[in-house]
Design a protein around this nucleic acid. Structure first.
Length: 473
DNA sequence: AAAAAAC
């Protein structure tokens, strides 16, 4: 079956072809014809299944057909996060190139002026997060009485974020006679009730069972300690041919610190979390999408729904609190039929979260051990410009005196080890580290070593995983 | 325990 069999217009088919798509995904096959017929729809689908196009494509044709001069918005799409809303807007632009539809992206964190101007001119589609939409509504800037097409996307996430009362209120402001599409990865009772209340005899389609993880994602657990996490991560980044990676942390502060640490180690990384200004958030995401950086350190703001091509690896720097989030996080890789790898770093503190994840997904994740963590990062440092190298060496020599016996052995291993990782590392490391003033570098450096502590907290004999490659246990 | 979302 091809897109042409789904009842879409020729202009739209052209845009789809131009975007490089030939075959609809299961959810698109099932959803598009029924949306075109004006039916309500409940779609149980994870992101990465082509869900967005499943509603954007038919919407473009519906809006393109009955097109009068839009004075009031004619359709509304609700998204839980600002980035997702922006992403849906991009989809409208991509597929709507041959239609003259107007849209407004109504999200918080950015000035209202442009959004209000767009609303005054009249738009065909509103793409919004609930907070800003309610805000604008409260200020009398939006009339929703012309919105006879509503999409509630990521409904279960809206629930998690406490948006359901807002959604209900928004629903009451829309005309009763309308078409409503609701998408959710899971169907908890509250969402079921919401669907019963606001949808009319919906068609129900389900393309991936909730809590099922994509089979083209290789999942691994790497056991480590909280002290060793950064070092372990760096080795994985270097050892496993990582091209593009998203690294998830549980806390915003961890995101910030880890990103700084990676940059100090000359990785090309960016960060995204909710404490950043919105323009900055979008800019960082954009740098990652464009390939200016190949590593994105993120909070769970990026866990769901973000569709970024070619993400080869997902790392969980922390095991997520909620097992659902694990499924969403690793779903950022292995998209569109590609293969992907997901590593979860597990310190003793993370063990309980892992148990819950394995219970949810119903399968035990393979444990792997890192062999010989030391040489990669430290060898690199010795190779640095002279002052740092000397400092570094002096510190190394201090270690044995403090009764740490790991260092000398590492020296040997380092010399013996062929350095075949080098060229690869250059691919994703920063060219120059001269981005911060010198004094800061020194301070951060020390801080980093305290946090990372190559060997702080480690007194035991050298464990068997001190060898270079990855191996299944 | 965290994160997200309006000002």
């Amino acid at each position: 079956m091809s897109f042409a069999d789904l009842g879409l217009s020729d202009e739209l088919l052209r845009a789809v072809t131009d975007a490089g798509y030939t075959e609809p995904t299961p959810i698109q096959r099932q959803a598009i014809p029924s949306v075109l017929m004006g039916k309500d729809l409940v779609g149980i689908a994870q992101t990465g299944t082509g869900k967005t196009a499943a509603f954007v494509l038919p919407m473009i044709d519906i809006l393109g057909e009955g097109r009068t001069r839009a004075l009031m918005p004619r359709s509304l799409i609700l998204e839980p996060t600002r980035e997702l809303a922006a992403q849906v807007a991009e989809n409208f632009e991509k597929y709507g190139t041959h239609h003259k539809l107007s849209m407004a992206l109504l999200i918080g964190g950015v000035q209202m002026g442009d959004q209000v101007k767009a609303l005054e001119k009249g738009v065909d589609v509103l793409i919004a997060t609930p907070g800003r939409l309610m805000d604008l509504f409260g200020r009398g800037k939006i009339l929703l009485t012309g919105c006879n097409l509503l999409v509630i996307d990521e409904a279960d996430r809206m629930l998690d974020m406490g948006f359901i009362p807002d959604i209900e209120e928004i629903c009451t402001k829309l005309p009763k006679q309308r078409q409503t599409l609701l998408f959710s990865a899971t169907m908890p009772p509250v969402i079921k009730k919401l669907a019963d209340k606001f949808l009319n005899d919906p068609k129900r389609i389900e393309v991936a069972r909730p809590a099922t993880t994509n089979t083209n994602i290789t999942q691994r657990i790497v056991e480590t300690t909280s002290m060793k996490k950064r070092e372990t991560l760096r080795q994985l980044l270097e050892a496993d041919n990582v091209q593009t990676a998203i690294i998830f942390c549980n806390r915003k502060t961890t995101v910030r610190e880890l990103n700084k640490s990676l940059q100090r180690h000359r990785f090309r990384s960016a960060e995204i979390h909710g404490d950043m200004e919105q323009p900055q958030r979008l800019a960082e995401l954009d740098r990652f999408k464009k390939g200016d950086v190949n590593i994105l350190v993120a909070s769970d703001v990026a866990a769901r729904g973000l569709d970024i091509k070619g993400v080869s690896h997902v790392f969980n720097f922390d095991a997520p609190w909620h097992p659902d989030d694990y499924v969403h996080r690793i779903g950022r890789t292995g998209r569109g039929g590609a293969t992907g790898t997901a590593y979860t770093l597990v310190a003793p503190d993370d063990a309980e979260n892992i148990a819950n994840i394995e219970k949810l997904t119903g399968h035990k994740i393979e444990r792997v051990r890192l062999k010989n963590p030391a040489p990669a990062a430290e060898g690199d440092e010795v190779r640095e410009e002279a002052p740092r190298g000397r400092r570094r060496k002096a510190e190394d020599e201090k270690k044995p005196a403090r009764g740490k016996k790991a260092e000398p052995k590492r020296e040997e291993t380092r010399r013996d080890e062929p350095r075949r990782e080098e060229p690869r590392r250059e691919e994703f490391r920063r060219e120059s580290r001269d981005e911060q003033p010198r004094r800061d570098r020194g301070r951060d450096r020390r801080r980093d070593e305290r946090d990372d502590g190559p060997d702080d907290g480690w007194n035991g004999p050298i464990p068997d995983f001190l060898n270079y490659t990855l191996a299944a246990e």
